[in-house]
């Protein structure tokens, strides 16, 4: 009898531990823009004929990109609070930032602390990629040769770090540097997805270049995906 109880208890305990650690949650949702989308400004690239020549149509600013049904693109969503004291492996696969047609691709993205950012110049003109972090060391790298690549890492978390090109003042990009892998950037449909989040309570933050930040509390407790949606107004 005693033995049975012991076995049962042990099994229960193991199950409890197993369920807490291996049932990882998912948070997904969409970011919407409420109201009439502002008209995107046309970027004049006349100052550098190489840039102007790379586009057949007029180039629009990526500051506010609103898709169908108010889907807001380029919003960086990440876990802001709730993971304190935990450490995560740093991925060695780099995130790519391309300078193509005198624009940064992507315009907004995320990276983990210590994870390399592979910066490429695909244009036959001089770019300088000027990273302006406050918590890590600032850098300003001239990339005069087409096809050049350079890797850079950030030492500390910071949301967001701005990149700019001093040669082409219209060029900028933003990277969210976080200490964990739980972040996502909204695509053209305004959706984001954060996977494999351990059970717990968190504060999510959504950042937009023009409209600032919003936060939301989410509790992840089982396998059912948690949904979270943000709405920005102009």
């Amino acid at each position: 009898m005693k033995k049975i109880a012991k076995v049962t208890l042990t099994t229960l305990f193991v199950l409890a531990v197993w369920s807490a650690s291996s049932y990882a949650g998912m948070v997904s949702g969409t970011v919407k823009f409420d109201g009439a989308a502002p008209e995107a400004a046309v970027i004049s690239m006349d100052a550098d004929p190489t840039c102007a020549g790379a586009h057949s149509e007029s180039v629009l600013s990526e500051e506010v990109v609103v898709g169908d049904a108010g889907a807001l693109q380029n919003v960086f969503v990440y876990v802001k609070e709730g993971l304190e004291g935990q450490t995560f492996d740093t991925p060695s696969t780099p995130v790519t930032l391309d300078q193509k047609g005198c624009q940064y691709k992507p315009h907004v993205f995320g990276v983990q602390v210590g994870q390399p950012v592979d910066i490429i110049n695909s244009d036959p003109t001089l770019h300088n990629v000027h990273g302006l972090p406050k918590n890590s060391k600032e850098f300003n790298l001239g990339m005069p040769i087409p096809g050049m690549r350079v890797k850079r890492k950030f030492d500390s978390a910071e949301v967001m770090v701005k990149f700019k090109c001093d040669v082409h003042p219209w060029m900028n990009a933003y990277v969210g540097v976080v200490s964990h892998p739980f972040f996502s950037t909204t695509g053209s449909d305004g959706s984001f997805e954060i996977k494999d989040l351990p059970a717990g309570s968190y504060v999510l933050e959504a950042w937009h270049e023009k409209y600032g930040t919003q936060t939301m509390n989410v509790t992840v407790d089982d396998a059912a995906p948690q949904s979270a949606s943000f709405t920005f107004t102009g």
Partner: peptide, 9 residues
Amino acid sequence: GTMMPTFFY
């Protein structure tokens, strides 16, 4: 903070 980039990283 200078706008002058380095070419010798």
